[in-house]
């Protein structure tokens, strides 16, 4: 009997559309309603550290997306083989290996980024979002769903840090992706007009302020309250 129903369930799931409503939710939920940074308040350390400029932030975001998707996939594939008693170590080993891979690739193909980011890329290992998704989702779900879940969470993380970086670089250094914006605006109005940059935005304090404002705006909109 029990094997019967199990088989039926599998058959049911296999017929599910590649991007069914449930699966879309896996990706979209962490973007706003269940955002790892603004709602769960995870992964704050790197959100503060790398977000002074857009470019390193983008590299960091891409690295996190890669690590999370691959880690969720590998752990999910192994989920029935991983001994429960050592599962945290196994997760850590997988994540650490992926992060080392990212670091090696950066060192080879984007040496400037590597110099700037290698410390923070290393810290992806301890990024609570990664381990959190492995433990909470990948260990108990199928590979494809886990990939979507990892992608969604990483995307949720990415857009927040990119938003923070946008304001920090614009207000702190007067530029975006290293292209001077403030100077351009100033020159439109002639020599006397000068837009001042805010040094506070360059320091971690600036990230706290932007992040706080973001969380405030978002929670006002979604009506999320912490209990």
């Amino acid at each position: 009997m029990s094997t019967d129903t199990a088989e039926k369930e599998i058959a049911l799931k296999e017929s599910e559309a590649l991007l069914s409503k449930r699966r879309k939710k896996l990706v979209t939920d962490p973007l706003v309603d269940d955002n790892p940074i603004t709602i769960q308040v995870l992964g704050i350390c790197s959100a503060l550290a790398v977000t002074t400029q857009m470019q390193p932030t983008l590299v960091m975001a891409l690295s996190v997306i890669f690590v999370m998707v691959m880690a969720n996939l590998s752990i999910s594939l192994l989920r029935n083989k991983i001994p429960t008693r050592v599962r945290i170590i196994v997760q850590l080993a997988v994540v650490a290996s992926l992060v080392t891979l990212v670091n090696e690739v950066l060192q080879a193909f984007a040496y400037d980024m590597y110099k700037e980011l290698s410390v923070f890329v290393g810290l992806i290992i301890t990024n609570c979002i990664v381990m959190g998704r492995l433990e909470a989702y990948a260990l108990g779900n199928k590979p494809y769903d886990s990939v979507l879940d990892g992608f969604g969470s990483a995307l949720g993380y990415s857009w927040i840090i990119l938003t923070v970086a946008f304001f920090r670089e614009l207000w702190g250094s007067g530029s975006l992706f290293g292209i001077p914006i403030f100077d351009g605006i100033s020159s439109l109005f002639g020599g006397d007009f000068q837009l001042a940059t805010n040094g506070l935005m360059v320091s971690p304090v600036g990230a706290f302020i932007i992040l706080g404002l973001l969380i405030w705006v978002q929670r006002t909109k979604t009506g999320y309250v912490e209990h």
Binding site: S97, T100, E104, A108, Y111
Partner: peptide, 17 residues
């Protein structure tokens, strides 16, 4: 996996350095 990638990427990394 890791030592393999390190070995493959080494010449490129050296050039970059």
């Amino acid at each position: 996996l890791l030592s393999g990638t390190a070995e493959v990427l080494k010449p490129i990394q050296k050039k970059a350095e």
